[in-house]
């Protein structure tokens, strides 16, 4: 139950969506781009989100593409997580996505919504960070393509009125050796205590995290430590953990100390085979 009213808009092109946003904004409204709507609806209930207009981007053709062309995988931001899992163009993304929420919810949750959402886990961004992908963003001045590292720092840094249209992944990444693990407080469904995803490229490990800090991240310094191959893995891990971008979370999923414990095990579990493999 959304305890306030909004208008619903369903543009069929990128330009129309951006124009709509501008127009609504000029009218003094608070519009939101609308993907799966799962977060907008659930946070609205709790008065943690507000909009008086929503712009559904699921009917914009560019947002729904799933295409491999010229060594590049393009994923529309409005694709549902299950549709990506089923097509399986990027196995690490499939793995990561398939551990988010539950399957029925993932029929609705979109890639763009998960990456751009407020709920801070944003797990599907991990493979995107690891694959050094590019994002296509629509805004007032048309489309622009940027490296994900430029726009995703802790969260998507979009300008007012911008939205994520697509992500583009260099095909050479999708078949790289990879690993993923999601550890929960208990059970098989639920938010992560920690999620770690990694790929190996040119003998170097790329590693990204969710649930460790109140945002997902991939950190150069952490990776440097983890790749200091002359040291034993345990040493590398404990050194790496000194370079986390923020102190480890302490919340209802788990305490700092326990998260640290779980994180160290998770890291050695996925890094050792990846390194050796």
């Amino acid at each position: 139950m959304v305890p306030f009213d909004f208008t619903y808009h369903r543009p069929s092109s990128i330009e129309e969506a951006v124009r709509l946003f501008e127009r609504l904004h000029k009218q003094g409204k608070t519009p939101l781009y609308y993907g799966g709507g799962t977060e907008i609806i659930t946070l609205s209930r709790l008065n943690l989100a507000f909009a008086d207009a929503v712009i559904d981007i699921k009917h914009i053709p560019e947002c729904c593409v799933l295409r491999i062309e010229q060594n590049e995988l393009t994923l529309g931001a409005a694709l549902s997580l299950t549709s990506i899992e089923e097509a399986n163009p990027f196995p690490l993304l499939t793995k990561t996505a398939s551990e988010v929420a539950d399957r029925t919810a993932r029929n609705q949750i979109t890639l763009g919504g998960n990456v751009c959402g407020q709920i801070f886990y944003r797990e599907t961004v991990l493979p995107l960070l690891l694959a050094d992908c590019h994002v296509v963003i629509a805004g007032k001045d048309g489309l622009k393509q940027r490296s994900i590292h430029e726009v995703f720092q802790q969260r998507m840094r979009l300008e007012h009125g911008e939205f994520l249209v697509q992500v583009k992944i260099d095909l050479s990444y999708v078949s790289l050796p990879h690993a993923h693990t999601k550890r929960r407080k208990q059970g098989k469904v639920g938010y992560p205590l920690v999620t770690v995803a990694a790929i190996k490229k040119d003998e170097r490990l790329h590693v990204a995290f969710s649930g460790v800090c109140p945002f997902p991240f991939r950190s150069k310094t952490v990776e440097e430590q983890l790749n200091a191959r002359h040291l034993p893995i345990e040493t590398r891990i404990s050194r790496a953990l000194q370079y986390l971008p923020k102190p480890i979370l302490n919340d209802t999923e788990g305490s700092v100390e326990y998260r640290l414990f779980v994180l160290m095990n998770a890291l050695s579990d996925i890094l050792i085979p990846l390194e050796e493999g």
Binding site: Y8, G37, I41, T42, R103, T104, A105, N107, Q108
Partner: peptide, 24 residues
């Protein structure tokens, strides 16, 4: 979106109808 009691099929796909707008 947590319990699934509201699940219906939309376009043959199971959806939690508490998290979808009717207009969608």
């Amino acid at each position: 979106g947590d319990c699934g009691a509201c699940t219906v099929l939309v376009d043959k796909t199971p959806i939690k109808s508490c998290m979808m707008l009717a207009i969608e």
